[in-house]
Amino acid sequence: MRQLLLDLIAEKPQTLANFEAGKNAELYQLLCRLAAHPEDSRERFVYLWGRAGAGKTHLLRSLAVLPHARYIDAASAAEACCYDPAIRIYLLDDCEQLSPQAQIAAFNLFNEVREHGALMITGGAVPPAVLPVREDLRTRLGWGLIYQVHELSDEEKIAALSQAAATRGLAVSPGVLPYLITHFERDMRSLSAMLDALDRYSLETQRPITLPLLRDLLQLEDDTKP
């Protein structure tokens, strides 16, 4: 069961189209504009911050599919934070996890991006002013626009999942979605994958999507955890 969920999550690419904006409408519109016309942006630097599961990585990976874009995670930053004239959009994630060597590389990349007019969008768990990084890099991360990425409320998650179920013609009993969001992973990608798994499990067992079916599925998921 757990492998099925992992496969379903992997099947769902992180795109701007499947990001539930919620309270992040202004940020979402900005990133849509940057995706459509990155060369027209007057902003060279954007920093996204928020708690785990809010959607920072989703947004950065959504932009990584653009031509001439490079996604950089903290683990690879020491090597990947190097300027390349062919890359116009740099997407640096998990800034709070940057190693000392990676911080030097990121600082140098900021300067190159500024000099050559490229675009750099970064993400971290906290605002740049309190990031546990060297002072010169902290200052660079504070350049440009700063957005907090707000996690969806439980009501917004239920509404989004209900809409997804309705679009697919799934009959989901009352109580299923409220129970799901309080007894499973909190991010929308995992929740959407569980909705897909419920659909498959319902078809396999010839049972309606009810709370007992969800509980059985969650128990199967727990039983197959390593």
Rank of each mutant, 00 (worst) to 15 (best):
A105R: 14
G144H: 00
G124Y: 06
C82I: 13
D136V: 00
F107K: 01
L145K: 06
A102I: 11
I146H: 08
E79H: 14
P127S: 08
Q97F: 11
L141V: 06
I104S: 05
E135N: 07
L141G: 06
P85R: 12
E156C: 06
E115Y: 01
L109P: 04
V133K: 04
P132C: 07
E151N: 10
M120W: 14
I121R: 00
R114D: 04
A159M: 08
I87D: 09
L91W: 05
A160D: 07
R138P: 02
E115G: 04
S99F: 12
W143C: 08
V130G: 01
P128F: 00
K157H: 06
V113E: 00
E151A: 15
P127A: 11
E135W: 01
R134T: 02
V130R: 09
H116P: 02
K157P: 05
V113T: 01
L137Q: 03
A129T: 07
A129M: 03
L137V: 06
R114V: 02
A118H: 10
R88L: 07
M120N: 13
Q103P: 15
L137K: 01
I87H: 10
C81I: 11
F107G: 03
A78K: 14
L137T: 02
D136S: 03
V113Y: 02
Y147Q: 05
L92Q: 00
L91T: 03
Q148A: 12
G144W: 04
A118S: 15
E112S: 05
R134N: 09
T139E: 01
A125D: 14
G142V: 05
Q103L: 14
Q148T: 09
V130Q: 11
R134I: 09
E151Q: 13
D94Q: 12
L152T: 09
Y83L: 08
Q101E: 15
I146P: 01
W143I: 00
A118E: 03
A78L: 14
L152N: 07
E156H: 11
H150W: 14
V113W: 00
A129K: 04
I89Y: 03
H150Y: 13
L137F: 07
H116Q: 12
A125T: 11
T139I: 00
A80D: 15
Q97T: 10
P85E: 15
